[in-house]
Computed example of a mutant assay.
Amino acid sequence: MKLLLGFIIIIVAGFSVNKNLFSNKAYDDVTSVTDIITNYPVNMFDFKQTMQDYAHHLCYKNEDTLTSQHITVNDCISKLDDKKIECEKKVFRLAPLNLESKGEVLDYSRQYTQCTLPYKYILG
Rank of each mutant, 00 (worst) to 15 (best):
P41D: 03
N43D: 15
M44W: 03
F45W: 09
F45H: 12
F45K: 14
D46W: 05
F47V: 01
F47H: 00
K48R: 13
Q49N: 11
T50A: 06
M51S: 03
M51A: 04
Q52A: 13
D53S: 15
D53R: 13
Y54P: 00
Y54R: 05
A55G: 03
H56Q: 12
H57Y: 14
L58M: 15
L58G: 09
C59P: 04
Y60V: 08
Y60G: 05
Y60I: 03
Y60T: 08
K61A: 06
K61T: 01
E63R: 10
E63W: 04
D64M: 05
D64Y: 03
L66P: 01
L66S: 04
L66T: 06
L66I: 10
T67D: 12
S68R: 15
Q69F: 10
Q69V: 09
H70N: 15
I71E: 04
I71H: 01
T72A: 04
T72I: 06
T72Q: 03
V73R: 07
V73M: 07
V73E: 04
V73Q: 05
D75I: 06
D75C: 07
D75T: 12
S78G: 02
K79Q: 12
K79G: 09
L80I: 06
L80A: 06
L80H: 10
L80V: 06
D81Y: 08
D81R: 13
D82C: 05
D82A: 12
D82V: 08
K83T: 14
K83H: 12
K83V: 09
C87E: 07
C87T: 09
E88C: 07
K89Y: 12
K90E: 15
V91Q: 00
F92W: 05
F92L: 05
A95Y: 01
A95R: 03
P96H: 05
P96K: 07
N98S: 12
N98D: 13
